[in-house]
Design a protein around this nucleic acid. Structure first.
Lengths: 102, 102
DNA sequence: TGACTCAATGTCAGATATGACATATATTGA
DNA sequence: TCAATATATGTCATATCTGACATTGAGTCA
C-alpha cells in the first residue's frame, strides 16, 4: 500500500469503522487491512484475557505502552510482523493465528 | 527478533535448512520464522503456478526482481507485510492464507 | 477534590525494510 | 557450444517502522 492511501485511511480513522467503509481500496488492500485489524482485536483480547496493562505487555515485548496502544488501535504504522510476533509472545499458537485469519 | 539473532541466522543461511536446525530460538521466534518460510514457499508456488517470472511478478507488485527473489528465499530483510500483500496480489484468499499458517 | 492507574495520541531520532541497480550464476533451447 | 532468459546475491539511498518520550484524558478510589 502506498503512503498516499495510508494517509487517507489514517485521516479517516480506519481503525474504528467496519472495513466495508473503506472506499476505493483494491480487494488486496482491503484484505490486508482486514487481516491487520483482526490481529489488532485479537491482541487486545489476549492481553485483557491475561489481565495485563498495555505497559506490562510492552515490557514483555520490550516495546512501549504507546506502541502497544497503536497496535491495538490498528495504527497504520504498525507492521504485521510486530502484530504477529506480539501474538506469539502472548502464547498464541500458529493454529490459533490461522483461525484468526480464516 | 533482534538484529544480532537475525544476522546469526542469516550467516547460517536459515532459508535452506529445516526450521528445527535453528538453535537457541525461542518458541515465539521459531514460530515467526516458520510462518515467514511457509509464506515464502507458497509465494513461489503461486508464482510458478501462474507461469510468471520473478520479473513479471515484480511488475505486478511494483517491486523488483531482486526483492521477489529475496521473498522466495526467505531473506530476513523481507517483512511479513510484503509477503502477505504479495500473496493477496496473486489472488490468495484469506482462507487460503489461514490454511498456509495452520 | 486530588492522587493514581490506564490508555490514546503526537513527535522524533534511530533502526529496519524497500525498490532499484549491478552483477553473478543458473537454466533453457537451438 | 552459444545466447537468451531466469534467478540469486550484494549494495545503497530512501521510505517506513520502531521504541521512547511527552502529554492528554478518562476512570477509580479515598
Amino acid at each position: 500500500m502506498n503512503t498516499t492511501k495510508r494517509k487517507r485511511l489514517e485521516a479517516k480513522g480506519w481503525k474504528v469503522g467496519s472495513t466495508a467503509d473503506f472506499l476505493d481500496l483494491s480487494p488486496e488492500e482491503a484484505a490486508y487491512v482486514e487481516v491487520k485489524l483482526a490481529l489488532s482485536k485479537r491482541l487486545q483480547a489476549a492481553r485483557r484475557g491475561k489481565n495485563l496493562s498495555q505497559e506490562q505487555l510492552a515490557q514483555l515485548l520490550k516495546s512501549s505502552q504507546s506502541r502497544v496502544a497503536k497496535m491495538e488501535a490498528g495504527d497504520p504504522t504498525v507492521s504485521l510482523d510486530l502484530l504477529v510476533r506480539s501474538l506469539f509472545a502472548l502464547g498464541t499458537s500458529r493454529k490459533t493465528l490461522a483461525r484468526i485469519l480464516g
